[in-house]
């Protein structure tokens, strides 16, 4: 019997299994165990969470493989890791380590100012950030098996993730309701590959799952993103920069599952301690806006 690895179905299917779940940023084995215990569907192994990357400045790169290995050994849920945009070798290194998913991420300093990775060449699946249908469909055409909103990472401010999710949902609905003869101009105007728009129109949905990321800081934020149509949620700095990570992590998982159960979210939100300190987006200079990275 033939056995084919790295097919679209296998790569996209992996992301389908994560639906309705929370993926948490962790920097060591201890945090990874807390995340798994809290019910995370996967962890993202990093050297620093986005808010610390912001604070540290300089060039942010792929994590030290030791950290990724430490996390891989600590948990049985899938382990993701980030490589720089366009950094073929960082991606190959992570693939060689057996990482379950790679995030070609704007949180790290881009390695290529023109091109993203050709992700179809890899056996490992990729997730990429997007702000609108153009970015999402270009990444999908390059081979991304999962999309997430960019939001504005490390700010604890949900406003950008909301903007990106609303934009994508509105654009997807528009494509679905368009007639065939309008599709090419829409492709031109949004910078979307024509074939991917055709697929969206035919199937009535984005061909891959779309998670929310970039600024989720509270259980209510996670539930908000689910209500806006996210398939699941990435929480970066929000959990381990809060006062009580265990409690916070559990509350975010439950709020994501039961995002329309407001009485439950009331209970989940009580006495959680202080959430991460946020950043108002207008105080960020253009150069500090990670969402502008990617092309």
């Amino acid at each position: 019997m033939v056995k084919q690895t790295g097919t679209d179905l296998v790569k996209r299917g992996m992301a389908e299994m994560q639906k309705g779940g929370v993926i948490m940023d962790v920097v060591n084995a201890e945090q990874a165990k807390i995340a798994e215990e809290a019910g995370a569907v996967a962890v993202m192994a990093l050297e620093r969470v986005p808010s610390d990357i912001r604070a540290a400045g300089g060039v942010a790169r792929m994590a030290d493989p030791t950290i990724v290995e430490e996390v891989q050994n600590a948990v049985s849920i899938p382990v993701m890791a980030k490589c720089r945009i366009g950094h073929i070798v960082e991606a190959r290194v992570l693939e060689a380590m057996g990482v379950d998913y790679i995030d070609e991420s704007e949180v790290l300093t881009p390695a290529d100012e023109v091109y993203h990775l050709y992700k179809r060449d890899f056996t490992v699946p990729f997730v990429c950030g997007a702000r609108d249908i153009g970015e999402a469909t270009r990444r999908i055409a390059e081979g991304a098996s999962m999309i997430r909103t960019k939001g504005e990472p490390g700010t604890g401010n949900i406003v950008e993730a909301v903007r990106h999710m609303r934009m994508m949902q509105a654009q997807i609905k528009k494509v679905i309701s368009m007639s065939e003869d309008e599709l090419m101009t829409e492709a031109k105007n949004t910078g979307s590959p024509y074939e991917v728009l055709q697929e969206i129109k035919r199937t009535g949905q984005l061909p891959v799952v779309n998670f929310a990321a970039g600024g989720v800081a509270t259980p209510a934020d996670a539930a908000l993103m689910m209500q806006l149509g996210a398939d699941g949620v990435f929480v970066g700095s929000g959990i381990f920069k809060s006062d009580n990570p265990e409690k916070f992590a559990r509350a975010i998982v439950e709020a994501t599952t039961h995002y329309q159960d407001y009485a439950l979210i009331v209970e989940l939100s009580k006495n959680l301690g202080t959430a991460m300190k946020g950043i108002e987006i207008s105080t960020l200079e253009q150069k500090d806006r990670m969402q502008e990275r990617g092309w």
Partner: peptide, 25 residues
């Protein structure tokens, strides 16, 4: 791990000898 995830075709008793099998972790 995920890189070892695969697709194949299975013989499933009572169903058929051409059943798609998508194995993910």
């Amino acid at each position: 791990r995920q890189r070892e995830s695969f697709e194949t075709v299975l013989k499933v008793n009572g169903i058929g000898n051409d059943v798609p099998g998508v194995f993910i972790r």
